[in-house]
Write a protein that binds this DNA or RNA. Sequence first.
DNA 1: GTCTATACAGGGATAGAC
DNA 2: GTCTATCCCTGTATAGAC
Lengths: 211, 211
Amino acid sequence: MADADHPRPSKGERTRRRIIDSASELFSRSGYRAVSLRDIAAHAGITHAGALHHFPNKEAMLIHVLSRRDEIDAPLVLSEALSHRELIDNIVRIVERNTGTPGMVSLYVNLSAEATDPTHPAHEYFVRRYRVLRAHLAAAFAGLLRDRPHPTPETAAQQFLALQDGLQVQWLLDPDSVDMRAVVASFLEGLGITVPDPTPTSTDPTGDRLT
Amino acid sequence: MADADHPRPSKGERTRRRIIDSASELFSRSGYRAVSLRDIAAHAGITHAGALHHFPNKEAMLIHVLSRRDEIDAPLVLSEALSHRELIDNIVRIVERNTGTPGMVSLYVNLSAEATDPTHPAHEYFVRRYRVLRAHLAAAFAGLLRDRPHPTPETAAQQFLALQDGLQVQWLLDPDSVDMRAVVASFLEGLGITVPDPTPTSTDPTGDRLT
DNA sequence: GTCTATACAGGGATAGAC
DNA sequence: GTCTATCCCTGTATAGAC
């Protein structure tokens, strides 16, 4: 978790990477359940049994796919160096960015629903995830809603997260019916928090495409 | 959808009913995926092939289970006789009631996530469902937010629905961390809509338990 | 350590006998 | 209308080749 040197990946490391790349691509394209171990392994150029040498089961692959995405988003959300405003702005930007990766959004929506089951392998992952996000957001709202009595910072945080999750379902069901960024921004403005980005527009000059 | 006479159900009708009763009970208890066709059929006293004579596949059973629930809720939400306030109040009451049926909530959460896939058998069902609910809610908010410029009735409707869906995920993941009714009520009060029910409390003297 | 081959139990679905 | 028998696919487990 702390070593940032990549001196020369071993063969096993490279295979693991290929498997997760394949899983990420296929999961994003078709969802978790529609993709079989044999699909992933074939895409990575090995047999499904070979893939299971590197990961104990299919869901372990899923957790790795999710963790990788989180590692990208974490500095935008969890960094202690962020001001309250920056945190909120970053989340709005992530909402905006998600519009470009419906496969990943679908994966999260489906998985968070499945992981609701306490016996699901990703259950603890999601419980922790929401706890952490809620705490960070509550802290931000505590700063930003200082002169507002009504929504508690904790309540605002829950509402903000729930709003995003629920909107994703509506957006996936019928993309033209929802402007996720606009609806989220409207919620924040209702709390007296103005959101700067109308939209950065442009043809994405920054090379930060993921995958 | 319009005939209310039940003169004497045929044998096939009764078997269909038993199957849906079984599916409803088992799905609510364990979720959709954890229950097999063979489980449902055994509970209904036939083989899985026998059950498939009455329904083309497992998901058709699911749709029937959901439709039955909707028939219960429909008059509370879709009736033209309701005032704007009554509509909102009824939804808050449904949110409250859902707290008592986590199995059903889990079923809806999981299914709406799955049905996000356009090839899913319940896709159209959910697209239509949200369209209808959104329209009704937008009409209600149009009446209730008359002197507020900011959230459009349509936006408020999307937010309100998204909030409920997202809260359900958080609540299922960690029931003690969320008071669904309170958070929903807080949202409405943020829009200037006061919600009358603190909670009816009591030991449920009205016999409107479902199932 | 890396991987293939193979077997297994369980899933949804289908064909055809009764 | 319901059954048995069967099919193919899934995730998972193990044995053993390299």
